[in-house]
Amino acid sequence: MTKITRFFLFALVSLVLFSCKEDEEVDFTNGIPVADFSYSPEFPKAGQTVTFTNKSENADTYQWKISFTAGVQIFASTDKELTYVFDEAEDYTVDLIVTNSSGAVSSTSDVIHVVE
C-alpha cells in the first residue's frame, strides 16, 4: 500500500470516528473501501492504449480522473475498469476515488510517465 493510500485511509477512519455524535452509529458492515489500481504497460508510449486495472476493495462506485500534472483535468469516467490513450509524451496524474454503499470514501493516485 502506498504512503498516499495509507494517509487517506488513516484520514478517512479518523474523520469517521471523530465526527460522529455520541448517539450516532457508523455502519462498517460493507467494510472500509480501499482504492487501488495498477496499469499496463508500465512505460506507455504516446498513442498507445493503457489499461487500468481496478484493484479496489469494498467499493461500489468508482470515479477516475486523468489530469496533466499542472492540475488541468482532461478526462473523467465512472466505469469500474478504464482504458485510455495518452496522445502526448508527458506526465499525467491518474486519480481513483471509490465509495461504498455506506458512503465511505477512499482515493489513490499515481503519476503516469508517457514517453515518445
Rank of each mutant, 00 (worst) to 15 (best):
C20S: 13
E22M: 07
E22I: 09
D23C: 00
E24Q: 06
V26Y: 05
D27L: 01
T29R: 07
T29S: 13
T29L: 08
G31H: 03
I32T: 08
I32Y: 09
P33R: 13
P33E: 11
V34T: 14
A35Q: 07
F37Y: 08
F37T: 04
F37G: 03
S38M: 09
S38T: 15
S38L: 12
S38Y: 05
S38F: 02
S38K: 14
S40Y: 06
P41A: 04
P41W: 02
E42W: 00
E42T: 12
P44M: 03
P44F: 01
P44N: 01
P44C: 02
P44Q: 02
K45D: 06
T49D: 09
T51Y: 11
F52P: 08
T53H: 12
T53V: 14
N54Q: 14
S56H: 07
S56M: 12
E57V: 15
E57G: 00
A59N: 04
A59L: 07
D60E: 14
D60S: 12
D60V: 12
W64T: 03
K65E: 14
I66M: 09
I66A: 10
S67Q: 15
F68R: 05
T69Q: 05
A70K: 06
G71P: 04
Q73H: 09
I74N: 04
I74T: 03
I74Q: 01
F75L: 06
F75Q: 01
F75M: 06
A76P: 00
D79N: 15
E81V: 06
E81T: 08
L82F: 11
T83R: 10
V85H: 01
V85P: 00
F86M: 01
D87N: 11
E88Y: 12
D91T: 13
Y92W: 03
T93P: 04
D95R: 08
I97W: 00
